[in-house]
């Protein structure tokens, strides 16, 4: 009799992707249409920048699944971006699939030994070490001149090719970015959902998780590697857009931007990262006349979100929708995308 009760309780199956993942992937996919709908270079470059920013910020989003705040995004972007620049300029490799694979795999592989070293650190110590790491990578870009071109960077990248077809003009560059962004978002969505129990457990109580048999460090290391790889894809998109790999594109302080996108958009869901990037990159553009003001705006938004709107934009929207629907919200309007999906 009680057996029946427990099986009945388990009948409900939770979907692999929540509504947030579907909406996010659909939005990113929709950007493929932009070059066919407009020839306005302003809109195209804006879309390009948003996609790069959002993809890079996924590195922050992934690590935040385990409550780890990472400043390492620019490092791994740089590694991905410089890998592509070196391959294309020095070795003449221009196939977009090969380059994308390299932009993902090289940072991810480098992240594994690094993660092994630093993932034992928690909270503040993890933050500090990723910050230090970003400074080191920045200095290395300048110092390792034979490889990186030092302060001049690597200029004159050839256009990438898809099936032998050159992707050279503005709209092609946007299509390349969209492809890289979609890949990054898809990998992140699958990865964070596949291991959502593990990540949520590490975030909430890693001591308990370990006592139940979870090898927390393996998941942390894996997440660090995937976050590095996805940031590397963003680095590829960035150097491809600029046709140059230069240290200033990966300034340590830019890590703050990626964190801001994720937090302001709402760190609980992948949609938050995308929405954060859309809003803030557009805002930066809107205030472009006084471009130097954007850090101040970011700062203000960070403080406001932290103090009064913990869930960020998506968190607030979710709450509002839930309130309107009463207590029976489902699907998209889930406050905790980690484990609790599909409550009814």
């Amino acid at each position: 009799m009680s057996n029946a009760t427990v099986s009945r309780l388990l009948e409900r199956r939770s979907p692999f992707f929540s509504g947030y993942e579907w909406v996010t992937l659909a939005l990113v996919l929709a950007t493929f249409a932009v070059p066919f709908l407009t020839v306005n270079p302003q809109i195209m470059s804006q879309t390009n920048l948003i996609l790069i920013a959002a993809t890079a910020a996924l590195g922050v989003y992934i690590m935040l699944r385990m409550d780890l705040m990472s400043f390492a995004v620019p490092s791994f972007m740089a590694i991905g971006g410089y890998t592509v620049a070196i391959l294309s300029i020095r070795l003449g490799i221009t196939d977009v699939f090969v380059l994308a694979a390299a932009a993902f795999i090289v940072p991810a592989l480098l992240a594994i030994p690094l993660g092994w070293l630093i993932l034992r650190l928690k909270g503040v110590y993890f933050v500090l070490v990723t910050f230090v790491l970003t400074e080191i990578v920045q200095l290395l870009l300048f110092e390792a001149a034979p490889l990186t071109g030092g302060a001049n960077g690597l200029v004159g990248m050839p256009a990438v090719k898809i099936f032998g077809f050159e992707l050279w003009d503005n709209s092609h560059v946007l299509l390349t970015t969209a492809g890289l962004a979609f890949t990054g978002f898809l990998i992140t969505a699958i990865f964070t959902r596949r291991y959502r129990y593990e990540f949520a457990a590490i975030e909430k109580n890693d001591v308990l998780a370990e006592s139940l048999g979870l090898a927390c460090w393996k998941y942390k290391a894996l997440a660090f590697a995937v976050a590095a790889g996805v940031s590397g894809l963003a680095g590829f998109a960035l150097v491809n857009m600029l046709m140059t790999a230069h240290p200033t594109s990966f300034a340590p302080m830019s890590s703050v931007n990626y964190i801001t996108y994720t937090i302001v958009g709402g760190k609980a869901s992948i949609l938050g990262t995308l929405v954060g990037a859309i809003l803030l990159v557009s805002a930066t553009d809107y205030f472009a006349l006084s471009g130097e003001l954007s850090p101040g705006l970011y700062g203000l938004l960070i403080i406001v979100v932290t103090l009064v709107a913990k869930g960020g934009v998506i968190g607030m929207l979710t709450k509002t929708v839930q309130r309107l629907r009463g207590r029976n919200g489902g699907g998209l309007t889930n406050p905790k995308p980690a484990l609790a999906e599909g409550k009814s």
Binding site: K204, N205, A340
Partner: peptide
């Protein structure tokens, strides 16, 4: 396997998810 002196669960997760996590991790 050990238990804890104070309450130790995965906060913000249902009883079901807590139990399923224990099963999954082991």
């Amino acid at each position: 396997v050990r238990s804890f002196q104070q309450t130790a669960t995965f906060n913000d997760n249902s009883i079901e998810d807590n139990l399923l996590s224990a099963i999954r991790f082991s």
